[in-house]
Simulated assay, not measured.
Amino acid sequence: MLEIRGLAASIEDKPILKGIDITVPDGEIHAIMGPNGSGKSTLGYVLAGREEYEVTAGGVTFNGADLLAMEPEERAVAGIFLAFQAPIELPGVNNANFLRTALNAIRRARGEEELDAAQFLKTARAAAKTLAMKEDLLKRNVNVGFSGGEKKRNEVLQMAILKPRLAILDETDSGLDIDALRIVADGVNALRSPDFSALVITHHQRLLDLLVPNRVHVLAHGRIVRSGGPELALELEKSGYAAMVQEAA
């Protein structure tokens, strides 16, 4: 699915990633944890193709293709999805129209038949119901006036509708109460299949208790300093990052 080798990246000539090596096989969920400022969000942005970040070394393959050679829209068509830590508001852009346009753009690029308004609304309403979202959120502008929890659920709704091959969740659990956290986790777990993988960036064991990742990677100072099974997250919950980061320095 995803293979990252020696990935280094910078922004405004400031090095952020300094040689990342991660392999995410088909059907697996991997968690990325680490102190603030360690490069976790940068990794997600680079994989999604944000232009501000310059890749200075290494490579990334996704389903055998050179991911870094693709434009952001090509990555979306290939199945890359990024859920933001702080979803932005889009005044004047209807939520349902936005989602339908995105879905049909992907379907068109793949040579699939586009959905008409009635077909899309049926799909969107069913997805919203599974996430305990009020149907009227589909009629509002994207994230405008949404609570923090509603914005995060809206991100998972997008994911449920677009059905990516690889979801990158950048602290989607941030600011969620226990009930909303479970709904978001259930939305991710509903997509689990041999054709779906995820990179979950998080600080919190609560989300990982619900997702049960295959692997956990600790990122610090732009590098992966340790990888392990789900028990590694429990160790971090107990002892924090400091000792592990100092040990790897």
Rank of each mutant, 00 (worst) to 15 (best):
P91L: 10
G92R: 08
N95H: 12
N95A: 14
N95E: 13
A96D: 11
A96S: 14
F98K: 09
F98P: 07
R100E: 13
R100A: 10
T101F: 12
A102E: 14
L103E: 07
L103T: 05
N104S: 09
N104H: 05
N104K: 04
N104Y: 00
N104V: 03
A105T: 13
A105D: 14
R107Q: 05
R108S: 14
R110P: 08
G111N: 12
E112D: 15
E113I: 11
E113V: 13
E114G: 10
E114F: 02
L115V: 04
A117F: 10
Q119P: 05
Q119M: 11
F120M: 10
L121P: 04
K122V: 13
K122A: 15
K122N: 13
A128F: 06
L131R: 03
M133H: 01
K134H: 14
E135D: 13
E135W: 00
D136Q: 12
L137S: 05
L137K: 09
L138T: 11
K139Y: 09
R140F: 00
R140W: 00
V142P: 09
N143I: 08
F146V: 04
F146D: 03
F146L: 03
F146T: 01
G148D: 03
G148T: 00
E150H: 02
E150M: 07
K152T: 05
K152V: 07
R153P: 07
R153H: 08
R153W: 03
R153L: 15
N154L: 09
N154V: 09
N154Q: 12
V156D: 00
Q158K: 12
Q158Y: 06
I161A: 10
L162M: 12
K163Q: 14
R165V: 15
L166H: 08
L166W: 10
A167Q: 12
A167N: 11
I168A: 06
L169E: 02
L169M: 12
D170C: 02
E171L: 01
E171Y: 02
D173M: 00
S174D: 00
S174K: 04
S174Y: 04
G175S: 11
G175D: 10
L176F: 01
L176R: 01
L176K: 03
D177S: 11
D177R: 04
D177P: 11
D179L: 08
A180E: 12
R182E: 15
R182M: 09
R182F: 02
V184D: 01
A185K: 03
D186L: 06
G187R: 08
V188Q: 04
V188N: 07
N189R: 15
N189T: 14
N189G: 03
A190C: 07
A190R: 15
R192Y: 03
R192H: 03
S193G: 13
S193W: 05
P194G: 10
D195V: 10
D195E: 15
F196I: 12
F196K: 11
S197R: 06
A198T: 06
L199C: 01
I201R: 01
I201V: 14
H204Y: 15
R206W: 02
R206S: 14
L207I: 15
L208A: 08
L208P: 02
L208Q: 07
D209S: 13
D209H: 11
L210M: 06
V212N: 14
V212Y: 08
V216P: 05
V216Y: 01
V218M: 05
V218C: 05
L219Q: 06
H221I: 02
G222Y: 01
V225D: 03
V225L: 07
R226P: 02
